[in-house]
């Protein structure tokens, strides 16, 4: 009996590993649906709206890939994952790609055998505290109780930051962002720490967002981006270049408004290559000519997606900052479509 438990675990692991090797593009096409791993709900990044339709910045990446591959932005099965389950879900083949505020780190890329296909948001870890505490710097947090989402890089950054500044804290590990916010609002912890973008997103949902401040210290680099399994380079290329297509579209001024017009041909050869009126970049990816046009057609270019979901006009109100185009002094930069 003891052996059978062991056996069961091995079987699961064996089957899980077995699914990972097949060609993802063919699987997705055969299935007719893209399985995309997202968060269990972070406003602005990935959250079902009132009608149960997933919306958000990360969701837009999934929809763009689905549009490029399956010609249908709705052909996505969103799989909510926690910080804990996301990597197993991806490694086991339960999802085809993960677009879930996931930090690109060395060990995840190399040791966990994943392939990060780019960065769609340059983030950093911040701290949020109630204004009434009168804290103005993270270095004043000696002895504070800190809510953290467990199984994330924030947990390690937090330990490093407090250790480096020689101050103490009491960690309260929590499984999901929603539970963390609940405990933070009940006063069970003084500080909530996660990526600054997610802090802003969560704060937007508070009863009184102005009663909470995000401290100025950003204690880590958190390049967030979609990722796929190691070893299927064709599929990784598709996800990588779909994201690049959105970024390039913004750089070249291709928007959801002028997409149809530019799709008929333009004076700019790079726009033509991107939208498939010149050359056949799509065929190199194993897709048709208009793959990028469809991807951009879902919700517009990178800048439009940003503004619509998390930009300054939304309740989340994030400035472009590091996430501006390189031409505007930001870090968003796509290799050329050539």
């Amino acid at each position: 009996m003891k052996k059978s438990v062991f056996l069961g675990a091995l079987t699961v692991a064996g089957i899980a590993a077995g699914a990972a090797a097949a060609g993802t593009l063919d699987d997705v096409k055969a299935r007719g649906k893209l399985n995309c791993g997202v968060t269990t709900g972070v406003p602005g990044f990935a959250e079902p709206d009132a009608n149960g339709v997933w919306q958000g910045f990360d969701v837009a990446v999934c929809r763009a890939v689905a549009a490029a591959v399956l010609s249908d932005p709705e052909a996505v099965e969103f799989v909510p994952t926690t910080g804990k389950t996301r990597f197993t879900a991806l490694a086991s083949g339960e999802i085809d790609m993960l677009a879930r505020n996931t930090t690109w780190t060395f060990s995840r890329d190399v040791d966990l055998k994943f392939e990060f296909t780019g960065v769609n948001y340059y983030d950093g870890q911040g701290f949020m505290v109630p204004k009434e505490l009168g804290v103005t710097s993270a270095k004043e947090l000696d002895g504070a109780t800190v809510c953290i989402q467990t199984g994330t890089t924030t947990e390690l950054n937090l330990a490093d930051f407090f250790r480096a500044n020689n101050i103490s804290y009491e960690p309260v590990p929590i499984e999901t962002g929603a539970e963390a916010v609940q405990q933070y609002n009940a006063g069970a912890c003084d500080v909530y720490t996660t990526d600054a973008s997610a802090l802003a997103a969560q704060r937007a949902n508070f009863e009184d967002p102005s009663a909470h401040v995000i401290l100025p210290e950003i204690v880590s680099k958190e390049p967030l981006g979609p990722l796929v399994r190691h070893g299927d380079n064709e599929w990784a290329d598709i996800v990588r270049w779909t994201l690049n297509a959105l970024v390039t579209a913004e750089e070249l001024g291709v928007t959801s408004v002028n997409l149809a017009e530019l799709g008929g041909g333009s004076d700019n050869p790079e726009v033509n290559r991107l939208l498939g009126t010149e050359g056949d970049l799509g065929a190199m990816l194993g897709l048709d000519k208009e793959w990028a046009k469809r991807a951009i057609g879902v919700a517009g270019n990178y800048g439009e997606v940003f503004e619509k979901n998390i930009g300054e006009s939304t309740p989340i109100g994030l400035a472009r900052g590091l996430n501006a185009q390189w031409t505007d002094g930001g870090l968003i930069y796509s290799p050329p479509f050539r």
Binding site: G83, K84, F87, S107, R108, D111, L112, T150, G151, T152, E155, L156, P173
Partner: peptide, 8 residues
């Protein structure tokens, strides 16, 4: 939990 996730 944490060890599994940090080391994979």
């Amino acid at each position: 939990g944490i060890t599994l996730l940090q080391t994979g």
